[in-house]
């Protein structure tokens, strides 16, 4: 975080500008996760923007082998994120390990395969500035975190985040920072939940069996309390939740952004962007979305 005032006398902190890559799953299916992610980012002193041209990272088509179609969609999101960086964002943050992996790891290969070398170069520039929410937040200062009611949680390491981004400790450390959050040890926390994108539609019986295996391995909380599965990828959680509900299992799921936001307390944290005069950077067109109206 920088310090405003050229002579150092005016020590009002200038917030880091962060572009949120909400991801299509969060945008459409789990908007509360996006709202929670914004709250958490603001609580670390970030000025959050939402580049509204973004759609999807292209992963469904990429994982199905349709690289050209994936590139076509990814190019749109690339342009939106790139413009946000040019407009002052120092980082792109996504509440998903999988979509972050797509941007950071697979986009360059994807664009090269689609014959778009220029986009691959641009994707690398965006990729080095793109972070998964936990990995970004863990390195910043957060206010005291406390859950209103003691909650037992088990953290699910989603595959791309674990094995491509190698983000392993950060989400766990964040949970352990929360007062009232009792994290239980889970021996199978690194095993795939069985979602796998379109795998869950193409081989649904195997996918459901994998969810059952994962759910059955969730330990019981202290004093026999129910345990909530917390993860950093909404898609895994929707799959696990869907299975848990259809089996009338007591296991619930929650995105880590929502846990962190709940631990910030009931008050809406101040938007750092509102607490200072923005002279050099006018409010953007609301539909442009780089700066939201307040």
């Amino acid at each position: 975080m920088g310090v405003g005032g050229a002579d150092g006398t005016d020590a009002v902190p200038v917030p880091d500008v962060v572009a949120l890559f909400a991801t299509c799953v969060v945008d459409v299916m789990q908007p509360d996760v996006g709202v929670a992610a914004v709250r958490v980012l603001r609580a670390t002193g970030c000025d959050v923007r939402f580049p509204s041209g973004q759609t999807c990272c292209g992963q469904p088509a990429w994982n199905s082998g349709f690289a050209a179609d994936a590139a076509r969609v990814a190019r749109t999101t690339l342009a939106a994120l790139e413009a946000a960086i040019e407009d002052g964002a120092t980082a792109v943050v996504a509440p998903s390990g999988s979509c972050t992996t797509m941007v950071r790891v697979f986009w360059p290969e994807l664009f090269e395969l689609a014959g778009d070398h220029d986009a691959a170069v641009r994707a690398r520039r965006v990729g080095v500035r793109t972070f998964e929410l936990c990995e970004f937040v863990a390195g910043r200062s957060l206010p005291a975190l406390s859950l209103p009611e003691p909650t037992s949680v088990a953290y699910h390491h989603s595959c791309h985040m674990l094995r491509e981004l190698r983000v392993h400790e950060q989400p766990v450390e964040l949970l352990d920072r929360i007062d009232g959050c009792r994290r239980v040890m889970w021996a199978d926390d690194e095993r795939c939940c069985g979602f796998g994108g379109l795998f869950s539609f193409k081989l649904p019986e195997a996918s459901v069996a994998m969810a059952d295996d994962k759910l059955a391995s969730v330990p019981v909380g202290p004093d026999g309390s129910d345990v909530e599965i917390v993860g950093a990828d909404s898609s895994c959680l929707l799959h696990l939740r869907g299975r848990s509900q259809s089996e009338h299992s007591p296991v619930r799921t929650r995105h880590i952004a929502e846990v962190l936001a709940a631990a910030l307390g009931g008050d809406r944290p101040p938007d750092p962007a509102r607490s200072r005069v923005i002279a050099a950077r006018p409010e953007g067109d609301p539909e442009d979305g780089r700066t939201a109206p307040r």
Binding site: V28, M29, Q30, S52, K202, P204, R243, P286, G289, A292
Partner: peptide
């Protein structure tokens, strides 16, 4: 292929971007 064995999560209708746009 999803709902046999998994309760569907239905989209709430108002997307994240709609809420952002509306402040």
């Amino acid at each position: 292929r999803w709902t046999d064995g998994r309760e569907p999560t239905l989209p709430p209708g108002r997307r994240f971007r709609d809420r952002w746009r509306d402040g």
